[in-house]
Design a protein around this nucleic acid. Structure first.
Lengths: 223, 223
DNA sequence: CGTTGTGAAATGATTCACAGCT
DNA sequence: AGCTGTGAATCATTTCACAACG
């Protein structure tokens, strides 16, 4: 089967996991991998891996498996990380600073192209190599620097306003760290990382003696 | 229906969202809420809300809805946040520091009771009100301070070792921020927050023009 | 023989729709 | 009338199992 088909949400999440595992193996120069091996590394069944990959075409080789370098390239293209995404970070507090320091950024196709904060005391000071800007500069910079994604690292009560401003400025997607559900029109994608939910999820599992893996993520999740 | 039944994973995630919304409304003194109102606030259907809550007993009132204060108390108990969970933070880098500064902690029933790092330069220095300890103190402190949860905020390559140490020391659950799948025996719960997955998820949605809400993370999930 | 891709079956989650309570 | 709790129906995802290929 080929192309335009609905991709199940769980499949979309696993694509990132496949890519990361494959990149690791590519570094240690392995040529091919079977769905069984890839699945085992990630705690998934071989059928699951094959079905996920098959949504995007047929690039396995019966009797052989998947060619790692080829699959990495395909997955990057599918995920959209074969190009660089310029992002705007809003919120230069503790979390914002931790995010700026995160090394994985550029390596994975993302670049923080501007940093904003509402706090007058922070405006003008530097965060890594960026001068912190006032929110009033948002629209101009999003335009000038071809910014496509916004990262919200502000307290809950101000997050919706920031989201509205980002969308007005023209971003296409938002990574939200504030513990609220963002209301956005459906041309814009939102992925949320909710620390509270993760913590309570863990407490719940432990209380329940529910043992075993929990899925979370920065699950990105929920909401 | 009552009690022991399997709780669907998505339901478990939504429990946290219900609790947060209800706590907000309790603050603004509302007495009762219907499944429709609660669902609308979170982007869910009324039936979904009712079904989720019904897994844990019948505490709604036909014709009236749910008594907010009562439901909050019930949810706290269900989630296990009606008590305080002592946690050990491992990793005092940027992320660890951001986590320490996170205000929601104590308010939601969690307390960082000790901080550890492998870096000799950091050991002995203070992070908020905690002296950073060497990993060799882990077992002793977990025992002494009744620590039940571990938070892993170290680079990927060292995370599995930290997880093993935490489990040896006796923690029951781990909140993992390292971008790897932790292998643990099934008496221990793991919830992962994976920034890479969240980012790529967003890029994927945007690329696809897939629009709409994404669920991420803290999805407890995926690990 | 090992391994893929994929229909068909099984399992899981959500939505519908309605009886019954207030 | 308004609203809950819940079986039944629908929809989504995973697992099975196997024909076809290298």
């Amino acid at each position: 089967m080929n192309q335009r088909q609905r991709i199940p949400r769980p499949t979309a999440k696993r694509l990132s996991l496949y890519l990361r595992e494959l990149e690791n193996r590519a570094r240690h120069q392995q040529g091919t991998i079977s769905s069984k091996q890839l699945g085992a590394a990630l705690g998934l069944t071989d059928a699951q891996v094959r079905k996920d990959l098959a949504y995007f075409g047929q690039f396995g080789h019966p009797g052989i498996g998947y060619h790692i370098a080829e699959l990495v390239a395909r997955l990057r293209k599918i995920l959209g990380t074969d190009r660089t995404w310029n992002t705007a970070l809003v919120g230069a507090g503790n979390l914002g600073r931790a995010l700026m320091a995160y090394a994985g950024w550029r390596a994975r196709g993302f670049d923080v192209a501007a940093v904003f904060d509402a706090d007058a005391d922070k405006i003008g000071t530097m965060l890594e190599n960026h001068r912190i800007r006032p929110m009033s500069d948002l629209a101009t910079l999003v335009d000038e620097r071809d910014i496509k994604l916004g990262i919200i690292a502000v307290p809950g009560p101000t997050a919706q306003g920031v989201a509205d401003a980002l969308i007005d400025a023209g971003v296409l997607g938002i990574l939200n760290f504030a513990p609220i559900r963002l209301d956005v029109h459906d041309k814009v994608s939102v992925t949320s990382v909710d620390l509270t939910v993760s913590l309570e999820q863990l407490a719940f599992q432990v209380s329940l003696g529910l043992t075993g893996e929990g899925e979370a993520s920065a699950d990105v999740g929920l909401d």
